[in-house]
Amino acid sequence: MAILVTGGAGYIGSHTCVELLNAGYEIIVADNFSNSKLEVLDCIREITGRNFTFYKADLLDKEALNTIFEENEVKAVIHLAGLKEKFPEKSLWYYHQNLISTLILCEVMESHQVKTLVFSSSAAVYGLSEKVPIDEERLLGATSPYGQTKQMIEEILRDMYESDREWSFVFLRYFQAIGVHKSISIGQELYNLSNKLLSDIFQAEVGKTSELSISLGVDGVMANDYIHVVDVATGHVKALKGALRSKSLQVYNLGTGRGYCDLELVTTFEKVSGRKIPYKIISEYPGDNGVRCVDPTKAKLELGWAAERGMEEMCGDSWRWLVHLSNELKEK
């Protein structure tokens, strides 16, 4: 039996597939390439030395999903497919794509008696929080269309569990994944860089901007809980093991337990790259106040998971990936 990974060709999805295959799982990947490329699948095969089944499918296509379940023995699903936090002005699009696709997925899973789901949620469901680090018991209050769809999906799945305790759900909440696999063969494409600062650093690398603008937030308080994408991927594997062990609904934060300010990120990039990155300090961007970081204690105690990679490794891998993208552009 196999694990279906929706969005398995995406940034976090591809790294999760690598960790699943390395852990000995059989996988099936479903992706419509809205946030990814076909070549990523060959990179996953090359990294792991293993093959897997792939379907080009949109989760809004119920017939295509049914085909996947009819043609394969699916044991569980890791749900990573969905629109990313890049288009805040397209709220209706977010709701349609992220909510309806998840409803269709759950309907198909239920009809085939597959009731184990790891949902890749987001720490965006917490909204603005005055107290950090944020634990899993904190009241939810998403403030963006992206975060609200994640929160709504959690609520839908929670209602499903309350009405049918045969389901097993795990929700994973995390902030900003960065870094890439050590092979430097899979990562976020340039058009998909969701972090503005990373995008600005890339623009500086290719000479499209002369100076970065770094915000220290209101009163100098601004920090993000960055986490290496491989740590996020191993978190999904650990969560899957937990979901398969018992029928329950569990929520886990994935993070380092501390926030890193933009200036710390840039100076670490300078250290790992050996290059000076020109920047200026600005007072604040709108909405920049606060420290965003989660408490990962529960994941450590119950899943045996902990982030293993620090900021230097996150930045080092990210820098090598940005250089890789830059070289690809120059070749074109």
Rank of each mutant, 00 (worst) to 15 (best):
V237S: 05
G10P: 05
E73A: 13
L139Y: 09
G8M: 01
L38P: 11
N253D: 04
Y11K: 06
V251Y: 10
D317C: 08
K182C: 04
Y95M: 06
L103K: 12
E89A: 10
L83F: 04
E89I: 09
N72Y: 03
E89H: 09
Y260D: 15
E63T: 13
S34R: 10
V132H: 01
E313Q: 13
S129I: 13
S194A: 07
V232P: 02
S163C: 02
N51P: 00
L254R: 08
V251K: 08
A9I: 03
V18F: 07
Y25V: 01
K241Q: 15
R165D: 07
V272K: 10
G82V: 01
Y55V: 03
N224R: 15
V5Q: 02
S129Q: 15
Q176S: 13
L140W: 05
K300T: 14
M160Y: 13
M222H: 15
L4G: 01
A9K: 04
N195P: 04
G7D: 02
L197F: 08
F269Y: 12
L190F: 10
V77A: 07
P145Y: 02
E154C: 09
K238C: 12
L325P: 02
L301R: 14
E136K: 03
K86I: 12
A204Y: 14
L198C: 09
E136H: 01
C43G: 06
S122M: 07
E155W: 11
L198H: 11
F87D: 11
V206M: 08
K271E: 15
I214N: 00
I68N: 00
L20W: 02
F119H: 12
E39K: 15
D58M: 00
G242K: 11
I201L: 07
D231W: 07
V125L: 10
L103G: 03
Y191N: 13
E166D: 14
L263C: 11
K196A: 11
D219K: 14
E73W: 06
E110T: 05
